[in-house]
Amino acid sequence: MTDLAIETEKLVKTYNGTPAVDGIDLQVERGGVHGFLGPNGAGKTTTIRMLATLLRPDGGTARVLGKDVVHQADEVRSAVALTGQFASVDEDLTGLENLVLVARLLGYSRSGARRRAAELLDAFGLSEASDRLVKKYSGGMRRRIDIAASIVVTPELIFLDEPTTGLDPRSRNQVWDIIRAMVGAGTTVLLTTQYLDEADQLADRISVIDTGRVIAEGTPGQLKASVGSGALHVRVRHPEDRPRAAEIVARALGAEVLVASDPAALSATVESSAPAMRAISELEAQGITVAQFSLGQPSLDEVFLALTGHLAQSGDEPATDLTEGAA
């Protein structure tokens, strides 16, 4: 009997000779949120599909809540729930019908299923849309009905595969609220995301995954600490000043400067506050107007760059580049 929610050893999945998952070792404790962070094509979804018994591993072992995903697949299914990257409810049915269907499949009586479905629709703020076909739902509503379908019976462990990809900030906050509520109710959450701030916000521990392998693991704080003690973030008033500002800051700190997707922003790791202050005054002295600066922990963006040598997909757009890592 193990107390781990998830335990994998050298888990491998290969597509046409190309490893999508290339020997993943994971140990996830029960309770809280475990973040699974990586760019598109890193192997996050493939790993989740193996853990949820939807895909058979080509190598290695995986135990979920102490049960082997291949030999005790049915026991695993009884204790976990899955919410896929693309909402896996039936879009040709109404929200209510979808939840009643899942409840019936899980053994609820006809009336019990209706009651449970109504209760969930209510909790997720979907009662008014209960008789509407799911294909008419907005993105945020769809994600909520999908999560609702996953908790008809409270799972011990839930896999949330990129639950906020493509959502607007308000819908994203709602999904975050739901995730926090699930954790509060004692469910273990495995959350995959390509949004660094999402992992930072929600996860107790994070596994960073790239090209089918876990390349780092720890609390968000530990991951940040592994990169440097702190970071200086600067926004210049005029974006055209940024290249020159980057040079000045790099010289003043003797460190590499990272330019973010925001055209006016740049950041760099610093050891202490004194050189950071010098860099700021140097910018002012050179006639560059600083709109904003802050000294804080490095962002996971910087962590990712330090770990992999390339940036994670960031920004608010869902990544559309599917060529990377795809077989």
């Binding site: 997720f124 908790i151 509060g184």
Partner: peptide, 16 residues
Amino acid sequence: TDVQAVHSALSTGTRP
């Protein structure tokens, strides 16, 4: 989303 309602919906989700 009512976090409290989600929480209570989770607590009543016993397996038939």
